[in-house]
Design a protein around this nucleic acid. Structure first.
Lengths: 131, 131
DNA sequence: TAATTTAATTCAGCATACTGAAATGTCGAT
DNA sequence: ATCGACATTTCAGTATGCTGAATTAAATTA
């Protein structure tokens, strides 16, 4: 999975950090530059570059905030990963079809819990290395 | 999962490439510096740095080749990820216990097939970006 | 034995992305 | 209307890791 993400990055000209930023953006729906900076642990100055690269790759949009003209509204571009993830989506859909709905439920449960485990372990590691 | 790997890297002072190199080393059992260079797509000069970092982190060993003294025998250090992955291993073992052996079989099957899908999609992406 | 090829390392030069600070433009409060 | 606070960008300086070439050492070939 890590190799796949590296390949996606190389293919689109974005870094690993950029992709994590995009995940944050998609998770939140939309964020400001400052929120993004706090969320991914970078300075505001670095976020400009992150959003630049995501926008250039067609993965995110940078729009003015309707009420506060200092702020940005950063959103994921609709169908952001379109071409890049189309192959994966199709292959995974095909894979899913091999299982009964009961089996799919078990798999979904396991995946959700595995994500929780990874999140927690990531938190622990990060706490250890930058306390 | 990508965030976890980044955290592992930060915690051990190794890069994403280093970790992929380690995966290659573990997969092959042992490799020479030149083989590693070809495998991960770097110049021999860069491989010196990769092995330096892996060795410094205690993840790999650099030993002389018994028959050809120009070559290196690079191996993964026994119990390489020990501390770093101990928490993950324990948590995942606990998670596994929640499922019946029939369910575990379904999950294992899905994971194996998902890995195949990711491998294939990675191959396709890499072929597209560096043809 | 001498010449050539091969393996790994070193090093200068280069590219990339981050930090920290200054600059710009905008909001809210007095 | 002015002042201070805030959001983002810009920019110089810095760190990191890669390439490509030169270097060292060892094996192979003549």
């Amino acid at each position: 999975m890590v190799a796949f993400h590296e390949a996606v990055g190389a293919s689109l000209g974005v870094t690993a950090v950029d992709q994590r930023a995009l995940a944050v953006i998609m998770g939140a729906g939309s964020v400001s530059a400052g929120e993004l900076a706090r969320e991914i642990g970078l300075t505001p100055g670095a976020v400009t570059g992150v959003v630049d690269r995501l926008a250039r790759a067609g993965l995110a949009r940078r729009e003015p905030h309707p009420e506060d003209r200092r702020r940005l509204v950063i959103t994921a571009a609709p169908g952001a990963f379109g071409d890049t993830f189309a192959g994966l989506g199709k292959a995974m859909a095909q894979l899913t079809d091999r299982y009964s709905s009961a089996e799919q439920a078990v798999i979904a449960d396991w995946v959700a819990r595995t994500i929780d485990v990874l999140r927690e372990q990531t938190r622990i590691l990060n706490a250890r290395s930058r306390p």
